[in-house]
Design a protein around this nucleic acid. Sequence first.
DNA 1: TAATACTCTACTAATATTGTCAAGTATTTT
DNA 2: AAAATACTTGACAATATTAGTAGAGTATTA
Lengths: 166, 166
Amino acid sequence: MLKLSTKGQYGVRAMFEIASGHAGEPVAIKEIAARQDVSVAYLEQILNTLRKSGLITSVRGPGGGYLLARQPEKISIGEILRSLDGPIALTACQDPMEGCVRADGCVTSLLWKALGEKIEGFLDAMTLRDLLTGKNKQLSGQKYPSLEIEKTGHHAFLEKTGKIGA
Amino acid sequence: MLKLSTKGQYGVRAMFEIASGHAGEPVAIKEIAARQDVSVAYLEQILNTLRKSGLITSVRGPGGGYLLARQPEKISIGEILRSLDGPIALTACQDPMEGCVRADGCVTSLLWKALGEKIEGFLDAMTLRDLLTGKNKQLSGQKYPSLEIEKTGHHAFLEKTGKIGA
DNA sequence: TAATACTCTACTAATATTGTCAAGTATTTT
DNA sequence: AAAATACTTGACAATATTAGTAGAGTATTA
């Protein structure tokens, strides 16, 4: 339960790729797609949305690609997710577009509201810079591996089977 | 995004109904269904699952119904949700049944893991007792209304239209 | 002018959620 | 015993959402 859409996930990863791109140079969609193992077409949708939200800019022509519209520390994960998946709304009651229907709903409604705010607080406090450096307070307490790309036969195996234990 | 299933929502609300039922007396499914405005058939599924998870017990025969299997303070919202919707898994990487596929996944993977733990921590700390009394620390800071049932023409309106602004 | 790259819209397939239905079993009161 | 009440179970259908594809088009620069 409480699944994050692949759109949101890919979006964050794409933003990470752009952020970690060679300083100032646009990152081509093709390159991002290759690294993320996502189709170019799907990524186009995602990046298009992010561009319209003002999180990235694009440069056309050969050598073109995508750039962050702001410094990594000015772009939160929350912004990225909201751009792609709309506002966080655990329940219909919390959704701005809907309304609280049930009369005795206020008890659990407050619960979901509190949780939603907790989640948003977390996501808004976390920025691309944190992902780049892994130094955010919220992530500390976790063992933080280096950002080096890790490749093992193990992963290759998982890639083929798709799932384990299922 | 990050929607909670109706099953989980109804489950929590049903548990709340049972918890607030007349001391020691079983609460009939019919009564719960009426209060929650959910079909009896759907609720049966939900309560059945909760019973199998050991969160409630049932009493048959006229005057029968459902009872909490433990004291309200011993039943967390997290338990209820996990019982109905399975483990919280924001992403496939976090799902015990799946695996982390992408080689460079560790950066965002940690992010989702940290968020997931934050959410679980919240839900496991929150109990039915907190819902009954509204005194949990996590809920404080929220304006906390009385548990009185609130009925306004406003709500009745929403009930008919279903959604607003959509 | 050709290559590269981004833009946009529509559409489909897969999956999960949400909920219904029907038949049956157990318990207690009268 | 019989009737009323209540829980049990499993199959199934409708709906919504997600995920991803396809294809035609526009812009930019070497």
